[in-house]
Nucleic acid binder design. Structure first.
Length: 420
RNA sequence: GUGGGUGUAGCUCAGUUGGUUAGAGCGCCUGGUUGUGGCCCAGGAGGUCGGGGAUUCAAGUUCCCUCACUCACCCCA
């Protein structure tokens, strides 16, 4: 096995062939979809002042309190690797110093969280996400969910489900916590140890406890919306209604909890059955962040690409099936033919044909073996007699047939194979 | 941070109660006579058994430490 000096950092990995084809497919189709919805790309730095994350995500959230990669630079500045994408975008928008009118941005790239790795959880992971700023109304939330639904379909996913809930307005938060505590207090002895701890620290978390015993109790609890103000309930109903109009199937789930402090109103999560314990493939919600005397409002989502890849494979979409191969393979007999083929190789490539040939001076038999493995549908064979006649043997690897062609004929047969 | 599982060839794994030069399948390379792949046949390369220490005449096999991978918890995408 490789010694540790050849391994990347724990929880971080090299992404290469063949999986990379799945990543490239997801990335390029994402750009297509985002363009159709009028979103443009933003690439924020991977590192920010630590306070950028603290002020957006909340000081007490686990993500900032114990999962950030933080360091102090030589100037004594406190910096952190970004654990998610929204905070950087909010920083960017806040810096504009003006009301951001209908700003629609998307991003994709690596995020970092110092957690223990497990299925669907890496320390360097990747997200693609969007932020729709400055349109604080239910239609905007519904559009965002519709975009995400469209995006997933475009990637090839079918079996995902969308769970929808509301976090309520920031001013509802205390009422929700109080209401839930009041209901749970008499049942406290029946809850698991973790939940008794959560009861004080973060009651909402009791709702999504994985212990069966806790679930039985929590299932009887009143929905969180019951503790919220009228506007919060109306907002959620309106989002739900609009999604119905757009034929996007969602499940209202009053037990859905999302952990970051910036959420206000709508929150949702998308799960996929192929995922295992960490079955959330993507999450999103409406948020409200106060920066000085400005309030930045937006709605957005992020999808975890490592989890998306697992889901795609679960639905039979494999990296192997997306791997591009050469259109043509060149086989040479003898040094002269080799050099002629080297020239032909370049010429064909300039014409947009993906082609390759053996560079190791191997026997013809070996070259044919490599040609077969390359998956190229056509092979060009040249030896002394072809050089003599100025022709090419063009072989169809599928059929096993072969014909002797001239240069113009060769080009006419190969042009349809061009990539792009 | 806590707990379980696993580390033997490029990959997937066998390796009996510790005992001679560590195996298989797949992959890779070379051949099976003149210039033709896939199938078949033959041969070959490739491993300090994750690393370190201990016990023993003898350790892939036992014990301790360490590193990594993996799954789960906390929490999140």
């Amino acid at each position: 096995m490789a010694s540790s000096s050849f391994q990347p950092i724990q929880g971080m990995s090299d992404l290469t062939t063949p999986e990379i084809y799945l990543w490239q497919m997801v990335e390029s189709r994402s750009r297509d979809v985002f363009q159709r919805y009028g979103f443009s790309e933003i690439r924020t730095p991977i590192m920010e002042h630590t306070k950028v994350f603290v002020r957006s995500l909340g000081e007490t959230t686990d993500v900032v309190s114990k999962e950030m990669y933080s360091l102090e630079d030589r100037g004594g500045r406190h910096l952190s690797l970004r654990p998610e994408g929204t905070a950087g975008v909010i920083r960017h928008v806040g810096g504009q110093g003006q009301e951001a009118a209908e700003l629609r941005l998307y991003y994709m790239g690596p995020m970092f969280r110092a957690e223990r790795p497990q299925a669907g959880r890496k320390r360097q992971f990747h997200q693609v996400g969007v932020e729709s700023l400055g349109a604080p109304n239910p239609a905007s939330d519904a559009e965002c969910i519709a975009l995400q639904h469209h995006l997933f379909n475009e990637w090839g996913l079918k079996n995902f489900s969308i769970r929808l809930n509301t976090r309520g307005l920031p001013e509802d938060r205390q009422a929700v916590a109080d209401g839930l505590r009041a209901w749970l207090r008499p049942r406290l002895p029946e809850l698991c140890e973790d939940c008794r701890r959560r009861f004080d620290l973060n009651v909402l978390r009791v709702l999504d406890c994985k212990q069966e015993a806790c679930q039985v109790i929590v299932d009887q609890a009143p929905p969180v919306t019951e503790f919220m103000s009228e506007p919060a309930r109306v907002y959620l109903d309106e989002v739900t209604r609009l999604l119905g109009k757009l034929s996007i199937a969602v499940t209202r789930d009053p037990k859905l909890v999302r952990g970051l402090d910036y959420y206000a109103h709508t929150v949702w999560e998308i799960t996929h059955p192929a995922l295992g314990a960490q079955d959330a493939m993507a999450g999103g919600g409406r948020y409200r962040v106060t920066l000085g005397n400005r309030v930045i409002e937006g709605v957005g989502f992020a999808a975890g690409l490592e989890r998306v890849m697992t889901a795609l494979e679960g639905e039979g979409i494999t990296a192997q099936s997306l791997a591009p191969g050469p259109n043509v393979w060149l086989v040479s007999m003898g040094d002269r033919a080799f050099e002629e083929n080297l020239e032909l190789l370049q010429m064909l490539r300039r014409h947009g044909i993906a082609c390759g040939m053996d560079m190791n001076g191997r026997s013809m038999k070996a070259q044919m073996r490599v040609a077969g493995k390359s998956g190229a549908p056509r092979v060009i064979i040249r030896g002394e007699s072809e050089l003599e006649n100025g022709t090419f043997q063009l072989k169809d690897m599928q059929e096993g047939t072969q014909e002797d062609v001239t240069m113009p004929e060769l080009m006419a047969r190969l042009t349809p194979l061009r990539v792009q």
